[in-house]
Amino acid sequence: MKRHTNDVILESATTFITFIIFLFAVYLFFAGHYTPGGGFIGGLVTASALVLVLLAFDIQTLRQILPIDYKLMTAIGMLIAVLTASGALLFNVPFFTHAHDYFNLPLFGKTSLHTAMLFDLGVYLVVVGVTMTIIQTIGESD
């Protein structure tokens, strides 16, 4: 994927657009419980931000910026999802029972915290990991 052309406009646009997309993805992820969004779509949008970097630069650049093993990311996501689900067993309630409550956090004020969010985090990580694994694998193959 080496490019010999001069893509200054694309590359500079990418540098700040990526962050906007990433922020949007984080927003989608956190807002998911109340408004449209959630782990799945958040993960996909995050992945698309990374793909944009990939398109504007190349795989090596992306790897330098984010030295992440996406297979490991997938595994961690799965682990978080399963542990969240089985955590309920410790409190003697059925598998996959979520708990939630309202807390007064220092910066955010009164906030609801929900273990479903942890599960969604697992979904998010898996989706990002899976998408990036596929794209990277296919991109690297000749």
């Binding site: 807002a31 998911g32 419980h33 109340y34 408004t35 449209p36 969004g37 959630g38 782990g39 799945f40 297979k71 997938t74 595994a75 996501g77 799965m78 999802a81 399963v82 689900a85 996959f96 979520h98 939630h100 609801s112 929900h114 479903a116 599960f119 969604d120 697992g122 979904v123 898996v126 989706v127 990991g129 899976v130 694994t133 596929i134």
Partner: peptide, 30 residues
């Protein structure tokens, strides 16, 4: 479920089991 987005609440809470295995499917595909 302390949520507002019904689709997402069903996905992660009411019927989270399905989602768990759907992400497994994705992981296997990758």
């Amino acid at each position: 479920a302390a949520g507002g987005n019904m689709v997402n609440v069903i996905l992660v809470d009411f019927r989270g089991f399905d989602t768990l295995f759907e992400i497994s499917v994705l992981a296997i595909a990758a």
